[in-house]
Design a protein around this nucleic acid. Structure first.
Lengths: 145, 145
DNA sequence: ATAATATCGGACAAAAATGTCCGATATTCA
DNA sequence: TGAATATCGGACATTTTTGTCCGATATTAT
């Protein structure tokens, strides 16, 4: 479904959202430990999210990553996925056609569209705030052990 | 969403289903032309589907690939996807956890589960016969041009 | 100032997915 | 029987994804 990079990216930004709401800036190492991901690879993904303006980073001794509070409810999962994997997973054709639509539908079009639009709605309506709330309330987790 | 191999695999087996219902056996070259896919790569994918017992192949001069008529309505998209990509796309965790469930749900679990189960239902209820019907009726296509 | 510590950026490495090539094998037809 | 033609199977090549390493840069605290 999502690439590994995207899985790490979602976990990372959600973890940052959780910490940022209590004004804690987190370092790359903290993040990688918290979500159980390879440090250097995670670094690349975070850089991409920073460049996409979804995250803020601070260099130097007490630096790290943070999410401006005002962004937590504005940033949706769709933005994160789009920044890393692109939007074809929730907007594209199931069989990979570039130009598949009602006028010229691929073999899976009608059945796939329903599912894909559900995915799209889910991604576009779920905010980082929503996800960080669930974690704060102990309902969900970012790490298995 | 699906791998390239899986996209080709679905197109290929649907094309074979269409031809097989009028008792036409099709060659690898015909298939690759019909679905606009790289010939040798398609060959590998078809071999996998044959080994998974979703298809039958016949060697020799008038050989090719065919789908036993009785199989067309029994084989669902889920079987094809599972043979090529595995079933994690419609059964697995959205964040890649091996052991994500109601007891220990990942951050995306509840929202993702709804979409994933829709996908699963769609894949498990759509048969090759369904898809070949739509093509026969000129409703859908396997090739863009 | 300088040392410590953090991200940034580019080069590099390994693994997986995608795609190619060709000889071996099986079947049909003349 | 032998030539033609199809899939099969393995080795190989390319591209993308995943992951590592390290010097450069920026910030903080001593």
């Amino acid at each position: 479904m999502f690439s590994k990079a995207c899985e790490y990216g979602i976990k990372a930004i959600v973890f940052i959202a959780v910490k940022s709401r209590q004004d804690e800036r987190v370092s790359l190492n903290d993040i990688a430990w918290a979500i159980d991901s390879p440090v250097s690879f995670t670094s690349k993904i975070l850089q991409k999210l920073v460049k996409s303006n979804l995250l803020d980073s601070v260099k130097g001794s007490t630096g790290g990553f943070e999410l401006k509070k005002s962004k937590a409810e504005k940033i949706k999962l769709s933005h994160v996925v789009s920044a890393i994997d692109g939007d074809s997973i929730y907007k594209g054709c199931g069989l990979g056609f570039h130009d598949c639509n009602e006028k010229k539908p691929c073999s899976l079009h009608y059945k796939f569209k329903l599912v894909r639009d559900d995915l799209r709605t889910m991604l576009e309506s779920t905010s980082l705030l929503d996800l960080s709330n669930d974690i704060n309330n102990g309902i969900t987790f970012l790490k298995q052990n």
